[in-house]
Design a protein around this nucleic acid. Structure first.
Length: 878
RNA sequence: GGGCGUAUAGCUCAGCGGAAGAGCGCUUGACUCACAUUCAAGAGGCCGUUGGUUCGACACCAACUACGCCCACCA
């Protein structure tokens, strides 16, 4: 790249590294900054230490950083607390995979060595992740970084476990749970993904024991037959009314089953008779409880039939299914097979079909916890943004079932429960006990299981602030201000934090929950490993810089909606930042001799206009930020910076910078520098690096833009009238440019321009003369009284009371001009028809606000004037 | 079976109870002394369908259609 061109192109890589280091070293991310300010706190959703960050993280973290930087610049005492999650199943699976590559299993090395390996893994990925977060520019307080498995969080987990146990909210029991035979652990209900499968419904004959024929049951899972302990029918089903109380015999193993009556049975479905397998189906489990049926566990944790399955023992469930169907067929007991589309539960991690089975596990009793968690959202204490997610949350919370929290893993918080080998006592304790409090025995075995990862994640808003200790940090920042996360983990995480926070702290964990969508690929597909369509944020940062990535992610998004990752949009963001870079370069070239306050300011119309537009923009940006409409805020800054400041103001300022008096030049320099640095400040939360770099080069007060005051429009002089006047001049310039372009008069060629209007408007034109000269490339500007007769062979435009003539003898194409004018007239006609229709409507006059009516009247008059003016001009050519 | 979302320019998407917006793409012109990662001008929309509320609806309400998502104990 040529040196010259390079100088005109922003090089993000050169500045990003530098500024992050300076910020971090100077402690600007610390919550001690703005120590007297009102606290503002976000706890970062901790990324899993399983791998690297993806685009979803980049979106999530950018949103948080924008909010944090904005609040910090407002003077709030901000704490954005970073951290990582140990992610039990996911991380353990990764390490097991790594071991498998070495040809060993976790059992070969044992629990302790395995955990050592996992901690090493954690260290590696933790380092990688935090580096990525830094690359992205996140202003989190690294001094306070936490990990879900660190000493403090572990203490919090034990504390909560013991408290809930003491209150009877945690219990151990043998209930039906979801078992993943691949991950070799239980998973909670929400970790089961239901997918539709085409399957078969086997209609099987179970003969009555008394020899009086048979009953036909329909099942999708014949392999569970060895575990049947009843057949159920609906008590109101006339078909079976006289069969209730009888027994049937399972043909393939000769066991006898009672026929019971239960409302659960749907008379419309299948045959209306259901085989009941309490140990391997959640519904059947409930029925079994109701009728005190025997529990017969026939499927083992390895996904194979166990001894209780008799002759089928040792088979996989699939093999068993086949064998049983064959046996029924051979015995003539298969009535028929029908097709059925039904949903099958799969493990969310590995996709293995989940096996429901009964096993002793630890549970959290949800009903008492859900109640306040629902209330605090319903009463507005916790607010979801967008609001619609409230319904999602409430709906789930109202139908919640007890939460199975024990996992048969090694990586995680070990359940703080010990069993006395001597007397069988169960000891639940915060601190490791040395002997049994009941019998004094020293043979204690700790429960081998660990807790669900989300158990510790649920404590994140307070465990990270120091709880269970009553730290100052906790007092200052709990409840936190806002939680920023994707809609995909409302149940997994948000809900758990809410009930855990309310239970332990007696106070809600955050005021707002700001929900965002997911980042999809260019085609709108979810980014995933299997599709290989993921985009690595680090690669994008290397290519375009973190600021471009951030800006792209922040624009064109609406709260709660998904967004697509489009490379073109990345280029747009890069171009915008390059634009600002060049605008700053231009300013700096013209600020070499600048000295603040050297002359009194002589603000021109354009100066007042751009200052007013800045004021309005600043107000709008803050309003949108308050509503979490970050995309809208970013768009406002973009439009103002590019369209108004760069394309208009900078061009206008050139005349005074190059040829003005020292006073004029000084004023232009001042406004240029002021507006530009305010643009940097407004934009800083979105694109922190480039704005800091450019702001530093411009005249500024303070050591970092991070701590500059965020522009909010308050205290700025208002110039509403001047802004409107300037808009009119700009419209005139656009009209002239339009004529020139349509007539093929290139901007390189100067053209004479004649304005005709009432004196007041002529004054305005006079004021804007220099802008017209330069921006419309006029050779001369002549002012004439209203009603001035058009010179021969001229083109004409009309802008709100101002007639504009371009004498173009020899250049003008009469046909083109006629066509152009006719098009304009047609547009006027359409407007006139609409407006007069409205104004002739008495209801409109009577019921619409007076200001609206007045506005429409003015508009109509303008349209009519314009039409008259243009029609008059058209006559000249006919 | 419930719940939710989306439907606006060729594409991707913002937006809004009082004259349809952006980016990209397209057309035409310009290497104009910050920037060709640029500048200027322009073409391009019954704002999914049908009703309703309203002086006024692209926006609010209802129904419908299409697509997508979430939840659910569909043997």
């Amino acid at each position: 790249m040529a040196e010259e061109q390079r100088a005109a192109t922003y090089q993000p890589q050169e500045v990003e590294e530098k500024w992050y280091k300076i910020w971090e070293e100077n402690g600007y991310f610390s919550s001690e900054i703005n120590a007297d300010g009102e606290p503002f706190c976000i706890v970062m959703p901790p990324p899993n230490v399983t791998g690297q960050l993806h685009m979803g993280h980049a979106l999530d973290q950018t949103l948080q950083d924008v909010l944090t930087r904005w609040r910090r610049m407002q003077g709030r005492r901000t704490l954005w607390l970073p951290g990582t999650d140990h992610a039990g199943i996911a991380t353990q699976a990764k390490v097991e995979e790594a071991l498998a590559k070495e040809g060993i299993s976790k059992y070969d090395i044992g629990r302790e060595a395995f955990l050592e390996r996992t901690w090493e893994w954690k260290d590696t990925y933790h380092a990688r992740i935090t580096k990525q977060v830094r690359k992205l520019g996140c202003s989190c307080d690294w001094e306070k970084e936490r990990f879900t498995l660190d000493e403090g969080c572990s203490r919090a987990v034990r504390e909560v476990f013991c408290e809930l146990y003491d209150k009877g909210l945690i219990y151990r029991g043998s209930y039906i749970v979801n078992w993943c035979s691949h991950c070799q652990t239980t998973i909670s209900d929400i970790e089961v993904e239901h997918k539709d499968h085409e399957g078969h419904l086997w209609h099987l004959r179970y003969p009555y024991t008394d020899g009086s024929g048979y009953i036909v049951v329909a099942t999708t899972r014949p392999e569970t037959i060895p575990g049947d302990t009843a057949v159920a029918v609906n008590p109101n089903d006339p078909r079976y009314a006289d069969k209730i109380g009888k027994t049937v015999t399972i043909p393939v193993n000769g066991r006898e089953l009672p026929i019971i009556a239960d409302e659960y049975c749907d008379m419309e479905f299948g045959t209306g008779a259901v085989k009941i397998t309490p140990c391997h189906d959640p519904n059947d489990f409930d029925i079994g409880q109701r009728h005190k049926l025997e529990q017969l566990n026939v499927i083992g944790r390895d996904g194979k039939m166990n001894e209780a399955a008799g002759k089928y023992a040792g088979m996989t469930t699939a093999e068993c299914r086949e064998a049983i169907i064959k046996d029924f067929t051979d015995m003539g007991m298969l009535e028929k097979i029908t097709e059925i589309n039904h949903s099958v539960g799969e493990c969310y991690r590995c996709g293995t079909v989940v096996e429901p089975l009964v096993s002793p596990q630890w549970f959290v009793k949800m009903l008492p916890l859900a109640k306040p968690a629902i209330d605090k959202v319903n009463d507005g204490t916790i607010r979801f943004v967008p609001e619609r997610f409230t319904k999602t949350y409430i709906g789930w919370m109202e139908n919640i079932r007890d939460w199975c929290i024990s996992r048969q893993l090694w990586w995680g918080h070990r359940i703080p429960v010990w069993y006395c080998a001597d007397c069988g006592e169960t000891i639940v304790a915060k601190d490791d006990p040395t002997c049994c409090p009941k019998c004094g025995g020293a043979h204690l075995d700790q429960d081998p299981d660990v807790l669900d990862t989300w158990f510790s994640s649920g404590l994140w808003p307070f465990s990270t602030l120091g709880w269970p200790d009553q730290t100052q940090l906790l007092k200052d920042f709990y409840p936190t201000s806002v939680l920023v996360t994707g809609y995909d983990i409302i149940f997994f995480w948000v809900a758990r934090m809410i009930f855990s926070g309310l239970e332990q702290m007696d106070e809600h964990p955050f005021d707002d929950v700001f929900i965002h969508g997911i980042v999809r690929d260019e085609l709108g597909r979810k980014m995933s490993k299997s599709l290989g369509n993921g985009v690595d944020p680090l690669e994008i940062i290397a290519q375009y810089g973190a600021d471009s990535l951030r800006f792209m992610l922040m624009t064109g998004i609406a709260p709660g909606n998904d967004t697509r990752f489009k490379p073109e949009r990345l280029e747009g963001a890069r171009n915008f930042l390059n634009k600002l870079f060049n605008a700053t370069r231009f300013a700096l070239m013209n600020l070499e001799d600048y000295e603040e306050g050297r002359y009194p300011l002589q603000l021109t119309l354009a100066d007042k206009w751009i200052l007013e537009r800045l004021r309005i923009t600043a107000i709008g940006v803050n309003e949108n930020m308050e509503k979490y409409e970050l995309g809208e805020a970013a768009r406002m800054i973009y439009d103002f910076s590019w369209d108004e400041f760069c394309d208009w103001y900078v061009e206008i300022a050139k005349a005074r910078l190059y040829r003005g008096t020292p006073e004029e030049r000084h004023t232009a320099q001042t406004v240029l520098a002021t507006v530009l640095s305010h643009i940097m400040e407004l934009l800083h939360p979105f694109t922190p690096f480039v704005t800091e770099d450019l702001w530093q080069k411009l005249p500024h007060n303070g050591e970092t833009i991070m701590l500059a005051k965020y522009p909010n429009g308050v205290g700025m002089d208002a110039y509403e009238e001047e802004a409107q006047q300037m808009q009119q001049i700009m419209d005139c310039i656009r009209a002239i440019r339009n004529i020139r372009a349509e007539m093929g008069v290139q901007l390189g060629k100067k053209a004479d321009v004649i304005f005709a209007a009432e004196p007041q408007l002529l004054d305005l034109v006079k004021t804007g003369e220099s802008y017209i000269m330069s921006l419309a490339s006029a050779a001369s500007v002549t002012l004439e009284a209203a009603g001035f007769a058009a010179p021969a062979q001229s083109a004409k435009a009309h802008v709100r009371g101002i007639d504009i003539f371009l004498p173009l003898a020899g250049v003008i194409d009469i046909d083109k001009e006629i066509a152009r004018i006719e098009k304009e007239i047609a547009a006027c006609d359409a407007d006139i028809a609409r407006l007069s229709g409205k104004l002739n409507n008495e209801s409109f006059i009577g019921k619409a606000p007076a200001a609206v009516v007045e506005k429409e009247r003015n508009r109509l008059k303008e349209c009519e004037d314009k039409r008259v003016s243009l029609v008059e001009h058209l006559q000249l050519f006919k």
